[in-house]
Design a binder for these strands. Structure first.
Length: 329
DNA sequence: TTCCGGAGTC
DNA sequence: GACTCCGGAA
């Protein structure tokens, strides 16, 4: 796909740029397998800036595989609260248990063994192999996919099988013989900073002379987005003696978290209303005061269990709008 | 308000 | 291969 002289020139230019401009990150400065594992789970669908404080707190509470494996799911989810996609936390917890039980608390280095762990798909397995074990493997996250699509002027939709094959081949052709950690980090940082989504900063690009893109801002090609659906939800606000009544999530969404109970729509004015966006939905959430039902569980307002952000925010808003006396009665 | 991002399920 | 899941940054 590319000439070896070109590849080594690319590698040299990219490496020099990374030495000078690469980001310092906690899981990069100390890339122990466990730290890399945790960071990769947190970074799925989530930006570096959002992950940083969660990563630091996680490492203080769960410094190694054995500690995480022994922790309760409630404690694990409480540490994940606000980060979203809570199945990642449950899977990371399960993976730690499996690593404790089957791999003597050592993160396996084999791609196939990594893939056998819950929550580790093709991307995360490759990323751990590159970052924790410094292997030269192709790691196609959104940033690197964009960089590769532009470098090779990929005209396929990158979500199709043909597009993925194209990127996989091109990324593999760029791999060095060793040093997967720096190569992958450099491509990611290039994608995050210079070769960013939207119009890239080509004038600052260390590998511009290797780039075949005629119109880089138009790449990568992706399918059109689905239209947004508007929904209206009503939830119950039941408080008593500085406690609020919650229910465990009844379905796969927000599994393991506690929610405000559902309520019938009301003609009267809601106590509090907020809107939030989730995937392709825009939800208007109304709260109304309600008397607790038998199987709802009370929780102290100053010691709440893990809750999804919209419900936590709705509760906080309603409490701010409610007279203190009303909570006690 | 819009944009962005991987694994699992079916 | 379509569809689900969450929150933060720009």
């Amino acid at each position: 796909m590319i000439d070896e002289k070109i590849r080594s020139g690319f590698h040299k230019a990219l490496g020099a740029w990374f030495q000078a401009a690469g980001r310092s990150l906690p899981w990069r400065d100390d890339p122990s397998p466990y730290r890399v594992l945790v960071s990769e789970f947190m970074l799925q669908q989530t930006t570096v800036a959002a992950v940083l404080p969660y990563f630091a707190r996680w490492m203080r509470s769960f410094p190694d595989v054995a500690t995480l494996a022994a922790a309760s799911e409630e404690s694990v989810l409480k540490h994940w609260e606000g980060l979203g996609y809570y199945s990642r936390a449950r899977n990371l917890h399960k993976a730690a248990k499996a690593i404790a039980a089957n791999f003597q608390n050592k993160i396996p280095a084999e791609l196939s063994q990594l893939r056998s762990l819950p929550g580790i798909g093709p991307y995360t397995a490759a990323a751990i192999t590159a970052f924790a074990f410094d292997q030269p493997v192709s790691v196609l996250d959104a940033n690197i996919a964009r960089v590769i699509a532009r470098l090779f002027d990929c005209r396929h939709d990158i979500t199709t099988a043909a597009g993925r094959r194209f990127l996989e081949q091109a990324a593999t052709a760029l791999l060095p013989a060793s040093g997967g950690r720096q190569h992958t980090s450099a491509l990611m940082d290039l994608g995050a900073t210079i070769c960013r989504s939207g119009p890239p900063e080509c004038s600052l690009c260390p590998v511009q002379k290797f780039c075949r893109a005629a119109d880089p801002a138009s790449l990568p090609i992706k399918p059109a987005k689905k239209p947004i659906t508007h929904l209206v939800e009503w939830c119950a606000l039941a408080t008593k003696r500085r406690h609020v009544f919650l229910i465990p999530s009844p379905g796969p969404r927000w599994k393991g978290l506690w929610l405000l109970p559902p309520a019938e729509p009301s003609d009267t004015e809601p106590t509090a209303t907020l809107t939030y966006a989730i995937t392709r939905y825009r939800v208007t959430l109304h709260l109304r005061p309600t008397t607790p039902v038998g199987d709802w569980s009370p929780f102290p307002l100053d010691n709440l269990p893990p809750m999804p952000t919209p419900h936590r925010n709705a509760l906080a808003l309603a409490l701010a709008l409610t007279k203190p006396r009303a909570l006690i009665e």
